[in-house]
Amino acid sequence: MKDVIFGEDAAPFSNYNAATNWSISRNIARRSGYDSLTKAERCLAHDIDKLFSLLE
Protein backbone atom coordinates (compact mmCIF):
# COMPACT_ATOMS: atom_id res chain seq x y z
CA MET A 1 0.00 0.00 0.00
CA LYS A 2 1.36 3.40 -0.94
CA ASP A 3 0.90 6.61 1.01
CA VAL A 4 -0.26 9.19 -1.51
CA ILE A 5 -1.68 11.74 0.92
CA PHE A 6 1.37 13.99 0.63
CA GLY A 7 1.99 13.14 -3.01
CA GLU A 8 5.37 11.58 -2.29
CA ASP A 9 4.89 9.02 -5.06
CA ALA A 10 4.29 11.72 -7.67
CA ALA A 11 7.11 14.13 -6.82
CA PRO A 12 8.09 16.17 -9.88
CA PHE A 13 11.87 15.73 -10.21
CA SER A 14 13.73 17.18 -13.14
CA ASN A 15 17.02 15.54 -12.17
CA TYR A 16 17.26 11.79 -12.81
CA ASN A 17 19.64 11.27 -9.87
CA ALA A 18 17.23 12.90 -7.43
CA ALA A 19 14.38 10.67 -8.58
CA THR A 20 16.58 7.60 -8.26
CA ASN A 21 17.71 8.57 -4.75
CA TRP A 22 14.13 9.09 -3.57
CA SER A 23 13.10 5.77 -5.11
CA ILE A 24 15.88 3.97 -3.26
CA SER A 25 14.92 5.71 0.00
CA ARG A 26 11.26 4.71 -0.40
CA ASN A 27 12.20 1.11 -1.14
CA ILE A 28 14.44 0.91 1.94
CA ALA A 29 11.63 2.30 4.09
CA ARG A 30 9.05 -0.12 2.69
CA ARG A 31 11.32 -3.17 3.00
CA SER A 32 11.96 -2.17 6.61
CA GLY A 33 8.25 -2.42 7.40
CA TYR A 34 7.11 1.18 7.00
CA ASP A 35 4.17 1.95 4.73
CA SER A 36 5.71 5.15 3.44
CA LEU A 37 8.78 7.32 3.56
CA THR A 38 6.85 9.84 5.64
CA LYS A 39 6.08 7.30 8.36
CA ALA A 40 9.67 6.04 8.36
CA GLU A 41 10.96 9.58 8.70
CA ARG A 42 8.70 10.26 11.69
CA CYS A 43 9.73 7.03 13.45
CA LEU A 44 13.45 7.32 12.74
CA ALA A 45 13.99 11.05 13.12
CA HIS A 46 15.43 10.79 16.62
CA ASP A 47 16.68 7.18 16.62
CA ILE A 48 20.10 7.34 14.97
CA ASP A 49 21.07 3.75 15.85
CA LYS A 50 17.95 2.35 14.20
CA LEU A 51 18.46 4.61 11.19
CA PHE A 52 22.00 3.33 10.63
CA SER A 53 20.86 -0.27 11.09
CA LEU A 54 18.72 0.11 7.94
CA LEU A 55 21.88 0.69 5.92
CA GLU A 56 23.61 -2.52 7.02
Rank of each mutant, 00 (worst) to 15 (best):
Asp3Thr: 03
Glu56Ile: 08
Thr38Glu: 11
Glu56Arg: 13
Leu37Ile: 01
Thr38Gln: 08
Thr20Met: 02
Gly7Ala: 00
Met1Val: 07
Ile24Ser: 03
Lys39Ala: 12
Ala40Thr: 05
Ser23Ile: 00
Glu41Met: 08
Ser25Pro: 01
Asn17Asp: 04
Leu51Cys: 03
Leu44Arg: 09
Val4Cys: 07
Leu55Trp: 14
Arg31Gln: 10
Asp47Val: 01
Leu51Met: 10
Ala29Asp: 06
Asp35Leu: 02
Asp49Gln: 09
Glu41Ala: 13
Leu44Phe: 11
Asp3Arg: 00
Asp3Trp: 01
Phe13Pro: 13
Ala45His: 06
Phe13Glu: 14
Ala18Arg: 14
Tyr16Asn: 09
Lys2Ala: 11
Asp47His: 02
Ser53Trp: 03
Phe52Cys: 10
His46Val: 12
Lys50Met: 09
Tyr34Gly: 02
Met1Thr: 08
Leu54Trp: 10
Asp49Glu: 14
Tyr34Asp: 03
His46Leu: 06
Ser53Cys: 11
Asn27Ile: 13
Asp47Met: 06
Ser36Met: 10
Asp49Met: 07
Ser14Gln: 12
Asp35His: 05
Ala11Ser: 12
Ser53Arg: 11
Ile24Thr: 09
Pro12Asn: 11
Asn21Pro: 00
Ala19Glu: 15
Ile24Gln: 13
Leu51Ile: 05
Glu56Ser: 10
Phe6Ala: 12
Asn17Glu: 07
Asp9Arg: 07
Lys50Trp: 03
Ile48Ala: 12
Val4Gly: 03
Ser32Phe: 03
Asp35Phe: 00
Asp47Leu: 02
Val4Met: 07
Thr20Leu: 04
Phe6Leu: 13
Arg30Pro: 00
Lys39Ser: 10
Ser14Glu: 08
Glu8Asn: 10
Ser23Phe: 02
Ser53Pro: 00
Asp3Lys: 06
Ser23His: 01
Tyr34Asn: 01
Ser25His: 14
Lys50Pro: 01
Asn21Ala: 14
Ser36Gln: 06
Asn27Val: 12
Leu54Pro: 05
Asp3Gly: 05
Ser32Trp: 00
Leu37Gly: 07
Thr20Gly: 00
Glu41Cys: 11
Ile28Tyr: 09
Glu41Phe: 05
Val4Trp: 05
Lys39Met: 12
Leu37Thr: 01
Ser25Thr: 14
Glu56Pro: 04
Ser32Thr: 07
Ile48Glu: 15
Arg30Met: 02
Asp35Trp: 03
Asn27Arg: 13
Asp49Val: 08
Thr20Gln: 08
Asn15Thr: 06
Cys43Leu: 09
Ile5Ala: 12
Ser23Val: 00
Leu51Val: 05
Ala45Val: 03
Leu44Tyr: 05
Leu44Lys: 04
Ile24Met: 03
Ser14Arg: 09
Asp35Pro: 03
Ser36Glu: 01
Thr20His: 02
Arg31Glu: 09
Gly7Ile: 02
Leu51Ser: 04
Asn15Pro: 00
Arg26Gly: 07
Lys50Leu: 08
Arg30Glu: 11
Val4Gln: 09
Ser25Ala: 15
